[in-house]
Design a protein around this nucleic acid. Structure first.
Length: 512
RNA sequence: GGUGACGUGGCCGAGGGGUUAGGCAGAGGCCUGCAAAGCCUCGUACGGCGGUUCGAAUCCGCCCGUCACCUCCA
């Protein structure tokens, strides 16, 4: 596995390229995190998942990694600001909406960033090495702005400090929006600061004495522009030359375009050669939006409010889906292709995750068995091939559907083995562990991933079910099949699936 | 208007000049008191039109369609 190199589509060059870290065998990358003014939705997580997969793939081929992902806890402008420049930012609006829950804007940010971390862990996303917060790096941001002013890349007006795009000849190289100037000039001039020299110029610092979050600057009280935080935090933790930057496709412009301009103005050279962007997902064939009722946060799906009618009944009834099923569903589309998230995909994914769990249970049993059983023929070889193929697929621009398919071949090989020797079980357990390291779909890696929904741990419920099953067994042995079937129907109503095996009856809660 | 991506069987979704994706659904079978679950078997599809080629779903061109971004957004 030593000579594998991951390939990724680079937005900057518009081609799929082999990723070659500056320092051989050590990938340093940054992934844009969310603004914490609300619960993160499944689209946010599709993007965070891409970063997680880059990390896992790099580790799987033996690379070191340094991974930074920020939390934006400073409010930035909403579209309303374009109409009403004195308007409030998103976080301020959130506070207004939920004012009774939070004492101030910092409480709100803290609450939603805690929620973000819980969801992050629930979906088996690995933690970054550093998770910087914008509010904790305002001084760094100010220093960068001062440096840009001093070097002539920025200028001050009575409303703020702006980056002068004219001084960045490559501006537009990432997004291709080189002509945005002409196209949007009129609108920009109206909504922005008259002191701006070029409509493309963007804010590095905004002066506002009344802003809910404000800091002191050489130009007066105010707050930083949106783009500067990522430039500053990226270079602070990864240096002025690192390898890769990831984010959602909407960030290509303006956010990353502006970041590139700032980076290069600050460093005097290219800072990041690879840019990776995750496409938006759709839900049930439509753009995810609150008005369409197809807007899902992670917790809507894994721990729904029972009374929230916009969450499908099937999900609410079982108290939320397995978080790993949600992760699996998000993996079933490649990050760069349009992906249609549907309830059906989620249902299929839950079954797939269950297959892994069942295989794992079988392996655990085989490991503990002391009886001599014949080795399964060719199992080790099938599993080796399965893993190699799964890893190859990940190296091929994070081809997750291909990787899942390859992994499933290994699952099938285990399922189909007539018997498993202890050695087989050890080999297969190791394989399962490797697959889990690569894709994160087998075992929860944090306590938070344990199923919170359902009543699996409910002893009373289990007792009730066991009792009904005993009753049914009695009816069956007495030949009273009408009675037995009635009990089975009753269990079915309770969401319990009955399975009659040769050596007894088992049951489990029904999935989606 | 500018920019980028994508169109594969009933559905999701890989692959990518001649040779099996996989899953779900569906059909048949085994098992079962009957079911369920499980297991076995079964699919020959690539938006349209041209071109290159011995051969194209795969390469090239054009067209059609879908999606996204162009200072709210992952």
């Amino acid at each position: 596995m030593a000579d594998r190199t991951p390939r990724l589509y680079n937005t900057l060059t518009r081609t799929t390229e082999a990723v070659e870290p500056r320092e051989e065998g050590h990938l340093r990358f940054y992934s844009c995190g969310p603004t914490v003014y609300n619960y993160a939705h499944i689209g946010n997580f599709r993007s965070f998942l891409t970063a997680d997969l880059i990390l896992r793939t790099a580790r799987a081929i033996g690379w070191e990694t340094t991974y930074v992902s920020n939390i934006t806890d400073v409010g930035h402008l909403t579209q309303d600001d374009l109409v009403d420049p004195s308007g409030e930012d998103r976080m301020a609006q959130a506070l207004e909406r939920e004012g009774e829950r939070f004492a101030n804007i910092y409480d709100l940010a803290r609450y939603y960033s805690d929620a973000l971390l819980r969801d992050w862990h629930a979906l088996n996303l690995r933690d970054p090495d550093v998770r910087p917060r914008a509010t904790e790096h305002v001084t760094d941001q100010l220093e960068a702005v001062i440096k840009l002013v001093d070097s002539g890349h920025a200028y001050v007006t009575d409303k703020g400090v702006y980056f002068s795009v004219e001084t960045a000849p490559d501006y537009g190289k990432l997004s291709g929006n080189r002509e945005a100037e002409q196209l949007q000039a009129t609108e920009r001039d109206i909504v922005e600061d008259e002191g701006k020299r070029d409509p493309r110029d963007f804010a590095l610092w905004k002066l506002d004495e009344n802003h809910l979050m404000k800091w002191h600057s050489p130009w007066g009280w105010g707050y930083p522009g949106w783009h500067i935080e990522c430039s500053v935090m990226g270079m602070r933790y990864l240096g002025d030359q690192f390898d890769l930057h990831a984010g959602g496709e909407d960030l290509i412009f303006p956010h990353h375009e502006c970041e590139v301009a700032q980076n290069e103005a600050l460093a005097g050279h290219e800072v990041i050669p690879y840019w990776v962007h995750t496409r938006f997902l759709q839900v049930e064939g439509e753009k995810m939006s609150k008005s369409k009722g197809n807007f899902y946060t992670v917790r809507d799906l894994i721990a729904p409010d029972p009374d929230d009618e916009h969450v499908p009944d099937a999900i609410r009834q079982q108290g939320g889906v397995d978080p790993l099923a949600l992760r699996y569903a998000l993996l079933s589309g490649q990050y760069r292709k349009p992906f249609n998230f549907t309830l059906k995909t989620l249902r299929d994914s839950a079954r797939a995750v269950k297959r892994y769990r069942d295989v794992q249970a079988r392996l655990d049993e085989a490991l503990q068995s002391t009886s001599e059983t014949a080795a399964a023929t060719g199992l080790a070889e099938s599993l080796r091939e399965s893993y190699e193929e799964a890893l190859d697929a990940m190296c091929d621009d994070l081809n997750t559907p291909g990787s899942l398919a390859a992994a499933l071949k290994g699952v099938k090989a285990i399922e189909q083995a007539d018997s498993l020797s202890a050695a087989d079980a050890r080999t297969a357990t190791e394989w399962l562990h490797d697959i889990n390291n690569l894709l994160g779909i087998v075992e929860p890696q944090h306590a938070a991933t344990e199923r919170t929904g359902g009543s699996d741990g409910d002893d009373d419920f289990a007792e009730q079910v066991e009792s009904l099953i005993r009753e049914r067994a009695d009816a069956r042995s007495a030949g009273d099949y009408d009675r037995a079937d009635a009990i089975r129907d009753e269990l079915d109503e309770m969401g319990v699936e009955v399975k009659d095996n040769p050596d007894g009856t088992t049951w489990e809660r029904k999935g989606l």
